[in-house]
Structure formats: structure tokens, C-alpha cells
Design a protein around this nucleic acid. Sequence first.
RNA 1: GUGGGUGUAGCUCAGCUGGUGGUAGCACCUGGUUGUGGCCCAGGAGGUCGUGGGUUCAAGUCCCAUCACUCACCCCA
Length: 428
Amino acid sequence: MKITALNGFKDIVPGEVELWQRVETAARTIFSRFSFSEIRMPILEKTELFSRSIGESTDIVEKEMYTFVDKQITMRPEATASLLRAYIQHGLHVQKPIQRLFTIGPMFRHERPQKGRLRQFHQMDVEVIGAQNPRVDAELMAMGALLLEELGLTVSLELNSLGCPACRPDFRQALLAFLEDRHEALCDDCKRRCTSNPLRVLDCKNPSCRTLVEEAPSIQEHLCQGCSDHFGVVQEGLQQLGVPYSLNKFMVRGLDYYTRTTFEFITGDLGAQAAVGAGGRYDGLIEQLGGPKVPGIGFALGMERLVLLLQQQEGEEVAEGESDLFVAGLGEVATNFVFPLVHALRRKGLQVATDYEGRSLKSQMKQANKAGAKWVLIIGDTELEEGQAVLRDMQSQEQEKIRIGTGVDALLSLLLQAFEKKKISLEQ
RNA sequence: GUGGGUGUAGCUCAGCUGGUGGUAGCACCUGGUUGUGGCCCAGGAGGUCGUGGGUUCAAGUCCCAUCACUCACCCCA
């Protein structure tokens, strides 16, 4: 084959797409239970939106964005910035003091693809804008946990606080001092991180860095009073809601805008990609983007990762296709009769499949079986002469004759009557 | 951007130290039933062995390059 999809871009084909629908349906159900409204934004935004929100010096902005350089526009690498832009642009804070919004869609990052990480990937993104109360943080995590639970996935929740502009600089200084003393013991990546983003040293995967960092100052002990109180209530809230979590003082977020609460839903079953969802609070961001001075918190779930987990958990079995009825026509005359009949049945709301290639009855029965048809209606020249079509129940293998009468309409009403009698099995 | 692994039928894969591409499984089509599915049996169709060079009498197999896929690093959902 000559033309294939781009590296890191994937088709979601029948057999797999059912799982995606399941994830999405479950999410919409839960989100609406928690009073979230959907919002949909464009995929292209001005480049500046992302460089200002995500952070000029992050990897995402520095080298991973799909940008049309000549036009200064970028395909969104994450949803929060776009969502906040829309929030500000439409003055949504005026309509409601607290906005609860979610969005589902594709994001784009030019990274090297690997398991659970693509260049076009999909996220379900949830944001609460305007709420400062730590209970909201706890509730948001509880909602994420509930969704994952409903999907049948077992993941753990890790929690940290990154402080705020008042207390983080102090911690940063303390950490830097600690790292400088041990600079030679750090891996090459961490030596680089000391200047680029010291907090990142905390979650280095290198074993020697990990042990070294055990002794490092803890952010949780450097929080200012406000942040410390907030963090405390978040944890109380989680306990009240019965959401299990563990504190992880090494957890750091990649995006610049996070403040206070940060969290990740973690799994050990996805190779290097441990996080199936993550998020946190971003209290200064909306103002920084030119909006009102309101706080915000949100998180994103990686849909590819959720689908991968579901596939691993229950196999990649293809969901059987389903239709109510397969109509088998035999011969030229019957086929001409069947063609409009099928359409009439579909207009009545039935799922109907049929054959278009004039194949043998055996072949059509096979198709019907594969399509998961509950009934097959057989109409050949014999049936047309007799004025009776054969209706076969695929499960019980029973067949009955149905009067065709004078035409499509007559047969249609008889068929619907026949289905009516079996309504119970239709609904199953 | 950096490293490792893998490219043979639609899919999953055999193919030994070079000697004519597999009776492989799944899927597909036809037949076994002159008009009846799942199971079974028989047959059929389906390939530029990723691509381009090189070595050789001879390359799916060895060498080089290239592309693609994949896992990991970096980073992240």
C-alpha cells in the first residue's frame, strides 16, 4: 500500500470503536450526573494562547506543537488553554459564578510515539472554573475515580500540592540548595533539570536519583498557611467521600500553570505511561490569559490509555454486529420486491440488513448470522406466488409463514404485528 | 531529538548453516444441502517476502542504505 496514516496517527476501526463509545458514553453519563456541561472548541488556536498558558520553556511549547509558523496558529496540544479562552471570550463567568465544563476531542503533540502515546491523541477534559473551595478539588477527584470504577478499571490516585506563587519559590530555593550539594551524584538529565526545571528532578526514573531525592526537602512541608489549609481540606474531603489516595511528594506536573492541588490516576499496566488521567488547580491562569480573576481546577483523561486498559482487561474481542432482521431475497422478482420493503422497515425503526449481490440462500443465511440478526425474512419466487413469506427466528430456529398480501404495505403491517407479539425478545 | 527490536497473505505467524514462497491458524469465497446460519469436511482466491542497491551460479535468508512499524529514553494524558 502506498499511502498510510502518518506516524503517530491512528484509525479507530469497527471492532475497536465500540470500546471508545463505551468510554465516552460512561464519561458523559457521569459528567452530567455531576452537573457538567459540554463545550466544544476549535482545534486550531493562536500559538500565543499555548505559549502563554502552558509555559514558554516547557517541552510541549518548545518542540512538540504542530504550528503553522507563517500564520502563528497551532493545533491544540491540550484542552485547558482552549477551554479557558472560550470561557473568557464568551464571558461565561457572568452567566454563572461557577462554571462546570467538559470537552472531549483530539489533541496533537509532535512526540515520538510509543505505547499509550500518539501524536494525535484524545482526551476527556473536565474543568471547574470559579470555585476556590477545596471540597471542589476532592469532588473532582472523586468523580474521576467513580468514572474509572464504572469502567471496571483499577487505578490508584496520587495526590500532591505544588503550593502557590507565595510559597513555591521558597521551596524551590531549598530544593536547589539541596541539589547543588549533590550535583555530581545526579544523572545527566537531572543535571540539566537543575537549571531548566529543578522540580522535575523529584520524579526522575533513575534509581540513584530516586534514592538521593528521598532525603530532599518536601514541598508539603514548605506550604504557606493558605496552601497548607487548602491541602488539608482536600484530603479530608477525599476521606469523607471514601476515595482512596496516597500522597506523593515527588509528583510534579509538566505544565507551568499548576498551583496547589495536583493529582494523577496511575496504573502499572501501560508500560511507561503510568498516568491515565491527571490534573490540578490553576488559580492564576485565567487572569493571566486576560480573563477575570477567578480560580480554576481540572483534569484530563487519556482516552487511548483507557481503551488500552479495557482491551488488556477483557481482550480485544470484536463486539458482534446486531440487527433485528435480515431480509433474504431470492431471484430477480423477489429482489425487486425486497429492496423497497427493507427501506420501509427501516423507516419504521427496525435495524434491517439485506444482500445486494444476489447470493445463494445459504450465503445469505451466513451473512444474517454474522450480522447478528434476530430474524430472517425469506422471500423467493415461491413465496411471492404463494403470497406467503417465511420468517425464521434465528435463535429458536422456528419458522412461520406470513401473508404477503397485495404488496409491501400489507406485509409490513403483518411483520410489525409479528414483531409486536415477540416484543419481549426484541427488547432483550 | 537519542537508543533497542521488528518488517513474509486482510490479521497472527512458520520458513534451519543461502537452493522453486507455507498442507499453518483466523478471516473471506464456493461446494457438501437443485432454497436455510452457527459445528464439521472439501476446494478456491489472496504475495512487488517493506523499498533500493550489493555479494553470489543462486538471496525471504548474507551485507549496505533507506522507509515503515514498535518499545524505551526525554517528556507527557
